Simulated assay, not measured.
Amino acid sequence: MVVEKEGTFEVNGHSLYTKSWLPDGPTKAKLIFIHGFSDHLGRYYNFFPSLASRGIAVHGLDQRGWGRSVRKPGDKGHTGTTAQVLADMAAFITPHLTPTPTASNSTSTSTSPPVFVMGHSMGGGQVLTLACHPDYQESVVRRVRGWLLESPFISFSPEEQPSALKVFAGRLAGRLLPQYQLKHEVMAHHLSRDPAVVQSIAEDGLMHNTGTLEGLAGLLDRTAALASGEVRPRPGGALRSLWMGHGTQDKTTWFDASKKYFDEFTGEVEDKEFRVYDGWYHQLHADGPDSEEFYREVGDWILARCEEDKPEAKPDAKPDAKPDAKL
């Protein structure tokens, strides 16, 4: 049985919707999840319950400007700058992190579940940007056991690539009217091979496909910095483990860009894995019956690292030998 809990997270005067999926038993790991563009926590089907059923507690929030964190029409897409996006994520992740070991607290981390952070699509690009950002290496990155990226937004797919003129005009307008709201329609039939999922996306009133010029410009800047390798894991090993999964037929974000990034720019990460989902679309968590395979593989990757980190069992201590008793 999985326990679901809803709540709110207060950050800089904003109240964001949160939801957790908790194991009905010992927690082996914690996963902090960041959703994608125009998405929300209610759209991940059985992914989170399946992880929780294996002892992985999942904690997520509807990001600023999205899902149930939108209280009025003017909130739609108001994510703020990239700096604001990263600060929101770091603020949400930090309370879940294990304490930094100290001389007086040297054993506290051994009994605390390791923390993993995962992002999908736009959220994947945000998570990767955070994991590579110099300002968060010690406060966040080093304290996270592993980072997972599902179909990360490193570049548009050829089907979704906007024209250079449209990008230029949008950036120019964004400087003049940063809070101006603009529709960016994501094609539902590009997201999943499952007709029922495609239909539900078209009917979901929380998926408003609206961004601000400021927010959209920030998204484009992040993808450009990732695609060029300007943003990459930093020397020193703060980013310990990285998993990236992408479908070869993704028509929203580009498989080739993710593979190129992984092959060329993740050399600083010793423990890393790129999983190819041949023929799959964008939403690996909602791409038909095959998605159970994705659930299992993500859970396996997380739990394997929990096992690796378990302290080795020490043999039972033998009692000290006693001298022979003298009569």
Rank of each mutant, 00 (worst) to 15 (best):
T100V: 13
R142K: 14
D204C: 07
L172A: 12
P101R: 05
F168E: 02
S108H: 10
N105I: 11
D194N: 15
T109I: 02
L182M: 02
P134A: 01
G125M: 08
A173F: 10
A173W: 11
A196E: 15
A196W: 04
M89L: 13
L149G: 03
A131E: 00
V117Y: 01
M207E: 15
S139C: 07
P158I: 06
K183M: 02
L213C: 09
L165V: 04
E138A: 10
N105F: 06
T102W: 03
R143W: 06
P195V: 12
G124R: 05
H133M: 00
V197D: 14
L97Q: 10
R71H: 10
R143V: 07
H208V: 12
G80D: 15
S163M: 03
Q137G: 04
F153G: 08
P195W: 08
C132F: 01
G125D: 01
S110G: 00
G124F: 10
H184K: 13
D88K: 12
A196M: 09
T109N: 02
F153A: 15
H184S: 14
T94F: 02
V70Y: 03
D194S: 15
K166R: 10
Q126D: 04
G124N: 02
S151R: 06
Q181S: 07
A196T: 13
R145F: 04
G77Q: 03
E214L: 14
I201Q: 11
T210F: 10
T94V: 06
D194I: 04
K76C: 05
V141H: 12
F168K: 00
Q179I: 00
H184M: 13
V186H: 00
V167H: 04
P101E: 01
P113Y: 04
P152I: 11
Y180Q: 13
Y180E: 11
S155Y: 02
H78Q: 12
T81G: 06
R145N: 03
V198S: 12
G211R: 07
P152R: 00
T210K: 12
S106D: 12
A90T: 09
V117C: 00
E159A: 09
P95E: 06
A196R: 09
V140Y: 01
D88I: 12
G146N: 02
V186P: 08
Q84P: 01
R171A: 13
P162V: 04
H133L: 05
P178W: 09
S200A: 15
L191S: 11
P158R: 05
G211T: 14
E214M: 12
S157A: 15
P113W: 06
S157F: 12
P95Q: 08
D135G: 04
M118L: 12
A169Q: 12
L148E: 02
Y136H: 08
E203C: 13
R143T: 06
D88Y: 15
V167W: 02
L149P: 03
S69D: 06
D194Q: 04
T107E: 13
P178C: 09
H189C: 06
V70T: 06
P113Q: 11
S69H: 01
S69E: 07
D135E: 09
L149T: 00
G170T: 09
T111Q: 14
E185H: 15
Q199T: 14
M207P: 11
V140G: 03
S108Q: 15
P178V: 07
K183P: 00
H208D: 12
K166Y: 08
A173Y: 10
F116A: 11
A173Q: 11
P95F: 05
W66F: 14
L165G: 04
K72L: 03
G170A: 09
S192Y: 05
L149Y: 00
S110N: 13
